[in-house]
Amino acid sequence: MATERSNLQDDVSLMTRHAATIEAPPRMRVGSLDAYFGSVHAVKGVDMQIRDRQVTAIIGPSGCGKSTFLRCLNRMHETVPTARVEGEVELDGRDIYARGVNAIAVRKHIGMVFQRPTPFPTMSIRDNVAAGLRVIDGAKWSRAETDQIVERALTRAVLWNEVKDRLSTSAIGLSGGQQQRLCIARALATEPTVLLLDEPTASLDPISTQAVEELVYELRSDMTIVIVTHNMQQAARVSDSTAFFLNGELVEMSDTSAIFTTPRDDRTEAYITGRFG
């Protein structure tokens, strides 16, 4: 009975979500994006629309430019020496690469979690989560307010119960999976519009992977998520739409169910059926 009801609820929420996405403009829009490392052309002329309150997965063999593409979405790509970006990336209709736009401000609105957990080793668990709050312009929180934000972020990252008794201890003492969820909590604390996940489970064990996947599934209800993964099952499990990259090009993008059952492109089919990559 219970499962039936939750299934029904899922269906309803799915329907409403679809209804919403049909009407709402995309949260992000990418137009003919090219990215380079020196003379290496890593991302070639990609166009994409990223819908709000959905999980968009990006898959492809290693070296296909999917991580580079992701790093172009919050202007992290340009932090690498010799790296260069051409094209447009719009967030809510504003080009984040337009002249005069500050990359640092962009990154405050588009959070990112990396392949390996990156807690700041000199900070406590609490300070790690609050790290992003300290750089928000013109905002000051009292200790109690900060504690509230930290608790909410940790709760959303499904880590609160595990760490609530040792918030002031070093973040290094946590397990790999906990560290990764801490990093997600750190990214959530500043309430970003979009969350980018760069192979967030690549260095985790299966149980931690499952925890992170469930978390991603939960989070979509109030934010936009883009996840890069080399694991097709993961993409199928957590995402609403999927983009397939090959040699820096966006080969195909559509609803996840469609891409895994009826791919339009032969190369996509070859990849998802395991013929290469």
Binding site: G100, A105, K108, A139, W141
Partner: peptide, 25 residues
């Protein structure tokens, strides 16, 4: 927003506040 109603991040409505140009540079 926080319980007291203050915005955590300067809201993204409109277009001025979101992508501020000054400061950190």
């Amino acid at each position: 927003t926080l319980p007291d109603g203050r915005a955590v991040v300067e809201a993204r409505e409109g277009d001025g506040a979101t992508l501020s140009i000054h400061g950190a540079a």
